[in-house]
Write a protein that binds this DNA or RNA. Structure first.
Lengths: 233, 233
DNA sequence: TTGGATTATAAGTATATACATAAAAACCTG
DNA sequence: CAGGTTTTTATGTATATACTTATAATCCAA
């Protein structure tokens, strides 16, 4: 650093961002390469690299070897959202957490679940329906299928003491998961379990998690009315 | 790891992950510091740094200067979700996109919006209700408030040609945003606009975006029944 | 014992250098 | 000119070194 200015990858990032926002570099444009920018900013190429890499990760730049770096055409904003363990979510609000197992059985799942879990036609899975309560009031219930092959020890676990989710998080490492968020209309069953009216709109999370070899579990969480999931950019 | 194996930050990351999953390093445990790990893995400290930083970003490690690095106690899984521009979302499914402005007015907002937008009591905002259609069928409608002070040029923009969201994305840089996801029950108004039944559960996104000086816009998107938002870890 | 200054430490960052790798571009060759 | 080969190039990564910064831990004095 010669001039005396302070340069950091964050400074570079901020300046690149400014130029994108100011439309000096427009969507689709190639921007100067790392070497050129490092000269312009009077810093090392590694510093520029870090800044551009970061912007690329957050979706504002597209980078490809040899091709170069360009401003993303459709800047997809990416938000990171935390997937909470329900217990901590409730306790985090200062409410007391309780849960109860409504159903625990071992049977061959319906075809939709079987397809999602990629299990054989006759394979039995562990089926659990659990209600989670905040200050004694229904908060969310989970309808969960677990592949016992992927989860050694689940048969002997006391899922009354620790919820299936917590037990799994604590005991079974997973590599990936997919989530989908949607809304449903409360039917008779949901209304009963969640103590709400039939016909109310309910927030739903469907989640599957897997490791290298198996799909571990697939769960649908149906939240009581009023639930909101929140995130910031 | 001493011989001549190939080391990269990803290798280091994978090994650290393995140890966490194998419970060699348990939640809450401090792990060796960067210098020690770099000796163990036979690589530079910068390489270890990159690996650990990455794991910290994804929520599996907690790092603090001087204190060290520990395995996160409650490993909050973070998913990144793309915030799509509705038009691209629809066109991406191979459907044709159309939108129509149902209402455009300039008035002082109700108190809830005023609080959210942090505007003065008498300030008028631009209020827009827009319906977005996929293959001619209602897909989502947006109830949007725009702060004209934050958005020079909005008064003269032709929001019939380009939706407000697209116009804003293209013309007004923003720095942050917050999102919340929830479900609601379709009332008369929603049922009419979205051509669905009263009482159906609808997926809702509330979003505000801001820049340094202003809250630019605040919008509620109410999706037609069946909408799902999807993400992977 | 408290509370403020000092010190030691681990992460955070910057840099020059070197090499790896993907892929666009240029170059052949039939 | 098509199809394959080589070259070039921008990003990607690794490393040694050096300095910065937050902060836990320690020390010391009131």
């Amino acid at each position: 650093m010669s001039g005396g200015e302070f340069n950091s990858w964050q400074t570079v990032q901020a300046e690149v961002l400014r130029r994108i926002n100011a439309r000096e570099w427009k969507p689709g444009d190639f921007i100067p390469n790392e070497a050129e920018l490092s000269v312009e900013f009077g810093c090392a190429r590694a510093t520029v690299n870090r800044a551009l890499r970061n912007l690329a990760e957050s979706g504002l730049l597209d980078r490809r070897r040899k091709a170069g770096t360009r401003v993303a055409l459709h800047p997809v904003r990416k938000a990171t959202l935390d997937i909470p363990v329900i217990r901590y979510e409730i306790e985090g609000k200062g409410q007391t957490y309780r849960h109860s197992v409504l159903l625990q059985e071992r049977l061959a799942p319906p075809s939709g679940i079987r397809a999602r879990m990629r299990t054989g036609p006759g394979d039995k899975l562990l089926h659990l329906v659990t209600l989670h309560l905040a200050d004694g009031k229904p908060y969310v219930f989970g309808d969960r299928w677990i592949n016992p092959e992927a989860v050694p020890g689940i048969e002997t676990a006391d899922l009354g003491a620790q919820s299936a989710n917590e037990w799994l998080v604590a005991n079974i490492p997973f590599e990936g998961g997919d989530f989908s968020f949607s809304a449903m209309t409360a039917g008779k069953r949901e209304a009963e379990i969640l103590a709400c009216k039939e016909g109310e709109g309910l927030f739903v999370i469907d989640r599957s998690t897997w490791n290298k070899t198996h799909i571990i579990t697939s769960v649908r969480l149906t939240f009581a009315p009023g639930y909101r999931m929140h995130t910031e950019i």
